[in-house]
């Protein structure tokens, strides 16, 4: 399960997701297009579930998403935007 890190907010933009880190007053632009939505980080989604959701909505083959998504979520985790920790 992946969720937003504490004190981080996110909103959907036409080009992807805009993350905001309250403690640092900083933003992070993620060009994810229509793949990702803020709800994917509410703590109820698995990576597999997100892949399935993107495939269903966009028609993108799962193998393409599976190649890209872990890198993207890994980057977000390394940037402390999202977390795998259970609250």
């Amino acid at each position: 399960m992946t969720r937003l890190a504490d004190d981080v907010r996110v909103r959907k933009e036409s080009w992807g997701l805009l993350f905001y880190v309250r403690a640092r007053h900083r933003v992070c632009f993620v060009r994810s297009g229509d793949w990702l939505y803020p709800r994917h980080f509410d703590g109820t989604w698995t990576l597999d579930g997100i892949v399935e959701d993107i495939t269903r909505r966009t028609g993108t083959p799962a193998e393409i998403i599976e190649r890209s998504l872990p890198g993207l979520t890994g980057h977000l985790a390394a940037s402390r935007m999202i977390s795998d920790e259970v609250r």
Binding site: R11, K12, E13, S14, R31
Partner: peptide, 13 residues
């Protein structure tokens, strides 16, 4: 630049 990407609303005001 990132700041050129169109935003639906301000980050801050």
């Amino acid at each position: 630049k990132y700041a050129d990407w169109p935003l639906s609303a301000p980050v801050n005001l």
